[in-house]
Design a protein around this nucleic acid. Structure first.
Lengths: 350, 350
DNA sequence: CCCTCCTGCTATTTCGTAATAGCACCGCGT
DNA sequence: ACGCGGTGCTATTACGAAATAGCAGGAGGG
């Protein structure tokens, strides 16, 4: 099969020349818009023959130039997209985003050019906004400055944030995980297992999502008739004295926002001869542990990452297609309840 | 503060209107071609102010239609980019590609719009070629068909294939792993461990890379004074009878292209009471096993995936920057030699 | 005082495709 | 014979950016 040795791809004009018709006729035949424009079967055949002969394919740039869209969706992460350490965290989102982009026939632009020397990425760099090259963007990651988002929103650029994000004065579209509900249910589950004294250890840094988890915890405690007990700290802030105090106060279950903190607590428990989960149940609310995978996986809330990625893309495309009648721009997806690996019935006595 | 509600991205014409100049002047200022076109500092300032005010960014489609650069590099895979099953295989390439793109200040376009309903992706799809939107592309994976590549090359589109790829009549740029040399060295290593009878089990499907491995094996045999013995088959083709025959003929080491086949052989060895590697050394030349990670990792050639990704991007950018004086368009990177996990000295007797 | 040269911009064309306006031609009715 | 409507095309324009041609206006020289 001889490959046409053209230096440049054939255009509709080339096809038209071969078929002996005008460029417009070629466009009509290829576009299949027989409704608006009348083409005889004979002409269509000649055009299609010429297409075949020259190996014509449409120039996507010209096509999208006419359509005023690029059919490009941006993916902006505030950290690198494929860093090994963060792989578990972002990878599944990206899979969902890609799957939905495939289904919708969009290409994805990974904004990698926006990285500063410190590894941080920001939307506005040198005053210009590269995101505009895409019809809209999905934003991922936590380390962002709210002002970038506010500005993007103010400019009317279509974007969806993965993870709940409340920016005062701006109505940001987002797809989040419903940590609150699942956390509340989890408290109920622990109460049903006999736990009457359930502690909550939160991160010192508060985000929208961490607030959700905390209020879910409080709601769950209210429903189960358990007194809430909340501590905010960094993992380093957790000391042996604190742990002894917690155990002494009769706590039999801990809900922890931070996996590193949970690892510390596991160490304390071990040194005090307490078994997890027989003596102390532990739930990790979000997996952030940067070290190796522990032998026994934590009981942890399942984040519907794939679904969140897919939903974000779907919502984004809706926003692009119908900028004036926006659909519900805030989507909360249910988390899956944790396995019972580090959850057990409350100890009868200690 | 009035919010510039931009329903549609501003164009150079919009900028020109605000700055009180013509569209051509805006283009000249932005393009920085002060050499050919004279613009006063005052006019340039007004234009740049308007750019800032409107948040203007050039339309990628229009630029590429005109044959200009977008600082976009395409990534085309012939399968989905993030499928779980293939994750190990592609992920590391993508990391390298991303790292280098970050370093060079390019953004990446993942061509996901080219997927057929059967999951296969092709360059020329739906009668159009999307790749044009990027300045050049990195192609990954096993292409079903060489004709796409030949055609792209004939059209003068800059692209680099990851993995060696020889297409008759087209000079395709590629970055490959030097399987041949490492395989040859490996035969020498086995010979030094006392193996005089080293079998080679190849895949029935032959690619450029598999040919490299086989010829490396033959070269290594020649250098070590060992008689080569090659079998091409699918894993299902390996039977107990075949295995018994191989062992009976005195083979003490097997080099296998396919990890699934190696798993089969391990099963046979187990049923015959032969220990790996004490009684039989096995080297897997390329990890393709689709099942769970085995307990003991195979001795296997290390593919420099990250480096291949980075090198492909570097080569691609060179090709884009200097299309007429191409650098060496074929790069072979060394594989790392295997660990001795399933390699041992030849048994003294059996 | 007029002609030339230079400066700094504007006007126009180009890229490939798609949509719209418009134009020849045919057949039919009167 | 003349008009009228329908058919099947062609001609033109627009999309956004960039390159090129060209044009006003001022400076300078003769």
């Amino acid at each position: 099969m001889p490959v046409p040795q053209r230096r440049q791809a054939p255009t509709q004009a080339d096809v038209a020349r071969v078929a002996g018709v005008s460029q417009g006729a070629v466009s009509a035949v290829i576009g299949g818009r027989a409704g608006q424009q009348r083409i005889t079967a004979e002409t269509a055949r000649r055009v299609l023959d010429a297409v075949q002969e020259l190996g014509y394919v449409a120039n996507a740039s010209a096509r999208s130039l006419k359509g005023k869209r690029n059919r490009l969706l941006g993916v902006h992460t505030f950290e690198s997209v494929f860093p090994i350490s963060r792989m578990d965290f972002y990878h599944e989102f990206l899979i969902g985003i890609e799957e939905e982009a495939v289904a919708e026939g969009y290409d994805l632009v990974l904004f990698t050019s926006t990285e500063e020397t410190n590894g941080q990425r920001q939307v506005y760099r040198g005053g210009s906004n590269r995101l505009n090259i895409a019809d809209g963007s999905v934003l991922l990651g936590i380390a962002s400055d709210n002002s970038d988002l506010a500005r993007l929103a103010a400019e009317g650029y279509p974007f969806v944030h993965v993870g709940r994000r409340d920016v005062p004065g701006a109505d940001i579209a987002w797809v989040g995980a419903d940590y609150g509900t699942t956390t509340a249910e989890l408290v109920g589950h622990l109460a049903a297992l006999g736990h009457r004294n359930i502690g909550y250890v939160g991160d010192a840094e508060r985000y929208e999502a961490s607030g959700d988890r905390e209020s879910g915890y409080r709601a769950g405690c209210g429903a189960a008739g358990v007194t809430p007990s909340v501590l905010f700290t960094r993992p380093e802030g957790l000391t042996t004295e604190w742990f002894d105090g917690v155990i002494g106060s009769g706590v039999t279950a801990l809900m922890m926002e931070n996996e590193d903190a949970a690892m510390r607590v596991a160490g304390f428990a071990h040194s005090r001869g307490l078994a997890i989960p027989q003596d102390l149940s532990i739930v990790v609310l979000i997996k952030t542990f940067s070290g190796p995978t522990p032998d026994r996986p934590w009981s942890t809330l399942g984040i519907p990452r794939n679904d969140m990625g897919r939903s974000a893309v779907r919502l984004l495309i809706e926003m692009i297609d119908a900028p004036d009648s926006p659909p519900d721009r805030h989507i909360l997806l249910s988390c899956t309840a944790p396995e019972n690996s580090t959850i057990a019935a409350a100890p009868t006595s200690r």
